[in-house]
């Protein structure tokens, strides 16, 4: 039995999909980032590239910025990225290069900027 060129192509595509499912979607079709000790925090960010870009500027507003200290802060109960939804109501805002953003967004973005 011989395999046609068409069958070979379909087979290769199927293999790739199985691989993607097994190894994680992001390894094949998204950006892949090296593992960090902070992935429990970074995985909350849907798209790390814009967050990192914002975070590079946000870090400038954070005197004495240190990743481990920031991570401790972000691992406090209730400090998930979704906290950003309540920041404005609570008056927790940060100005980053003029952009008025929720404090939580600025902090997670600052972390992303160190690992992206």
């Amino acid at each position: 039995m011989s395999m046609s060129r068409r069958d070979f192509g379909l087979g290769a595509a199927a293999l790739a999909l199985v691989g993607a499912a097994g190894l994680g979607y992001r390894h094949f079709f998204g950006r892949w980032y090296a593992p960090t000790p902070y992935d429990d925090l970074l995985h909350q960010i849907t798209d790390r590239r814009p967050a990192a870009q914002l975070g590079t500027e946000a870090v400038r507003t954070m005197p004495g910025f240190e990743v481990p200290k920031l991570a401790v802060q972000l691992r406090q109960p209730g400090f998930t990225l979704s906290r950003a939804r309540d920041d404005a109501t609570a008056g927790r805002l940060t100005e980053v290069s003029g952009w008025v953003v929720p404090e939580t967004v600025a902090l997670y973005s600052a972390l992303a900027s160190q690992f992206t």
């Binding site: 960010i45 590239r49 814009p50 870009q53 953003v101």
Partner: peptide, 12 residues
């Protein structure tokens, strides 16, 4: 930077 600020904030 503006686009990044909007995307990061909207996603959050």
């Amino acid at each position: 930077l503006g686009t990044a600020a909007v995307v990061a904030t909207a996603q959050a």
